[in-house]
Design a protein around this nucleic acid. Structure first.
Lengths: 216, 216
DNA sequence: GTCTATACAAGGATAGAC
DNA sequence: GTCTATCCTTGTATAGAC
């Protein structure tokens, strides 16, 4: 159990060109998302990168280490915009909810990180550390930001308090499920009618705000 | 002594002895859910069944066919209770929603069929027919039943109409996500505090009914 | 850092005895 | 219907030349 990670790039200076390692990770993420962990071979990854299989082992000591790197890197970038929205004092509380939801839809459906749930489920027993990293580094971050946005609205009297746990699941549940459904049912002709992103998002947002708004 | 010439039940409707084939499917479902499709080998399955690998091929022509059988069989049983609730005229509309939600939580979190989403996502591109079967035979069935329950409530003036697509996602989203989260984060010590089934279910149900109930 | 070549295990699937 | 034995492919990973 020895860690053999490359030194992390602190700034712009690199003792090693980021190109190759970064490209391997990029291709790996795409393949893992498409074929699953066990379904992705190092040969297929090498071919996707245009190099030989053995060369992969110069950058990563094992397939498992490579996968861990895929899953644990890049969370900060994913939630950066969300943090900005949370602190944007020029937005009303309702608009902050709308913008945050739109951003979470974007992250969860479009980004590699957001689409990793089925992948994590596949390997969670085999490589428990990826579940922990995904949970602490990604899931919890998002939940905390959304909670902060709602708390601010309650504090200012714009929102009515609701059960916290239920609201979290009501907000994130439909988004995660939509993302996974779209992965499950890629290729079905009914995909865009049963799982259309914009339409679900807008309707979802309206219903959430119905619950948060003060009523006479 | 080992002759299994069972006295065939007259006029019975058993197309085939359930014993061996059924046991293989049962073990396969457990292994596929635990290790994924590519991560489950025919050798491991044979060992779990206590037979030799070659014997599996007497019952199923290939691993893929075996998997398809795992995914396509058993939907009727899963949604039977849900159908009963829909038609139970002794329940109020609110109670029908409560019972239906409780049943969907049970199906989605406890049953093999309900926990298959990550698995379907893994193989959907490789074996498209399983996605179709899962969608038509399971997902759509549940949605239609829930829609019927809500429609009945609207018709009787107990519920206020809400956007249909949004409500579907608001109802199923948190349940599916909870199921997958519990699969992803099995083993995390915070599992029961962040993803507790009963608590989420009750809170979820209350919020849904807030949206459906008529307000002054 | 990347290559060719290779070690060695495990994968899916088949043949044929019983 | 289950077994043993086997085929061939693919898997991860390593050795060593350049």
């Amino acid at each position: 159990m020895e860690k053999e990670d490359e030194p992390k790039p602190d700034g712009a200076r690199d003792k090693e060109r980021p190109s190759r390692r970064a490209e391997i990770l990029e291709q790996a993420r795409t393949l893992f998302l498409d074929k699953g962990y066990a379904g992705t071979s190092m040969s297929a990854l090498a071919k996707a990168c245009g190099i030989q299989k053995a060369s992969l082992y110069h950058h990563f000591p094992s397939k498992e280490a490579l996968f861990v790197a895929c899953v644990t890197e890049g969370y900060d970038v994913a939630t950066r915009e969300l943090r900005r929205i949370m602190n944007d004092d020029e937005l009303t509380h309702e608009d902050r909810v709308r913008c945050a939801l739109a951003e979470i839809y974007k992250i969860t459906i479009d980004s590699h990180v957001g689409r990793m749930s089925p992948l994590i489920a596949e390997v969670s027993r085999q490589i428990p550390e990826v579940a922990r990293a995904f949970h602490d580094g990604f899931i919890i971050q998002q939940h905390e930001i959304v909670n902060a946005i709602i708390d601010a609205g309650i504090k200012d009297g714009a929102f009515v308090p609701q059960d916290r746990l239920g609201m979290e699941h009501l907000i994130f549940g439909p988004i995660v499920t939509l993302s996974i459904s779209r992965q499950m049912f890629t290729g079905l002709d009914t995909l865009e009618t049963v799982f259309p992103v914009e339409q679900v998002r807008d309707s979802h947002c309206d219903l959430i705000l119905q619950l948060l708004r003060k009523r006479p």
